[in-house]
Nucleic acid binder design. Structure first.
Lengths: 191, 191
DNA sequence: GTCTATAAAAGGATAGAC
DNA sequence: GTCTATCCTTTTATAGAC
């Protein structure tokens, strides 16, 4: 064979990460397969050697979010601190920089809601993983945080970042600082 | 003239509300002008007698959300109760019924983020109006609620409804009830 | 596996009649 | 103001060479 097996895997990963980044920044419909492939250093025709169609790529790209989230799964001894750092990083990331991967859960909520069940299931998986990660950070031997509080927190994080991408920089500042304060107070109150 | 002036205004309003409903349920790109016009009882060609292009329609439709939100602007004597009812209605509405207009702020966040500034500004306006409405409900002569807390609450409401449209019915139930409880606790604690 | 070339469909926008 | 008919661009997807 003319190409090693690793080559295909590498191509596939390039396509996946190029797609996830572009979709997150601009939305599924606003990015063409052409652009994704060019971004991955390939041409359009090749796309179909890797994926059945554009929707399958969407699904697989969203599932790849899990891998990002599952990092640092060691038992935390300073979980609360790590959690606060995570929230801060999340809310203060530079979402306008095209080189950085913004949170797909925040950037694609609405976009995913209008797709086939396959895509929505992938999103649901990643959302679940985010909640589990937080639960893990905030669980100690003695106490464990209420699951519904975690859901309220992730809703706030995802919601505020999604909204921030539509409003002015000035309004964004107040929005994100309000959410940060509120998340912290929820945690400090309960645990 | 063959058509009365009211006729055009009525047509325009039909187009606007038909568009807002369809966009909210399925997203901007997934709805064709053809469909919007058919839904309003007109044909595609006529569209351009009312709007410059599809994007202008999007902007105007989102601005129309304000009108919905600005209802009930009388001074509330039982604001806190009204607020709780509003949150409950918001979180428990039947978002899958195509006859009902779901909250465009929740259904279109991500969608709007990827459009021209004109559209984003319209969204920002409506978002502002929602926050003001809540502020109004929760203000009394003696106390007024922290603006950043309101932003955290609207982020949670919009975020959770947006997320709920991607996940399972079962998961949605827990998500929305968690947000409702958390919003209530934030209000009862502070005010 | 990757490329170039091309088919085929969808949908936004315009022209002209009534 | 509204209709029908048409243009034109974009983009997904396929065919076939290397």
């Amino acid at each position: 064979m003319r190409y090693a097996k690793e080559h295909k895997i590498e191509s596939r990963n390039n396509i996946l990460s190029s797609a996830l980044k572009l979709f997150s920044h601009r939305g599924f419909d606003n990015v063409s397969i052409d652009e994704i492939m060019a971004n991955a250093g390939l041409t359009r025709g090749t796309f179909y050697a890797h994926f059945k169609n554009k929707q399958e790529l969407y699904t697989k790209a969203i599932l790849a979010v899990d891998l990002e989230l599952e990092k640092n799964s060691s038992t935390p001894d300073n979980g609360k601190l790590q959690f606060k750092q995570m929230v801060t990083d999340y809310l203060e990331a530079d979402y306008s920089n095209p080189e950085i991967l913004p949170c797909p859960l925040a950037c694609l909520v609405t976009d995913v809601a209008n797709r086939e069940p396959e895509v929505r299931t992938a999103y649901a998986e990643s959302f679940k993983t985010l909640n589990l990660k937080i639960k893990h950070l905030l669980s100690t031997k003695s106490s464990s945080i209420d699951e519904e509080t975690i859901l309220a927190i992730t809703s706030m994080m995802i919601g505020s970042v999604a909204i921030s991408r539509t409003i002015s920089k000035q309004a964004t500042k107040k929005l994100l600082s309000g959410c940060k304060k509120t998340v912290f107070s929820l945690i400090d109150a309960e645990y």
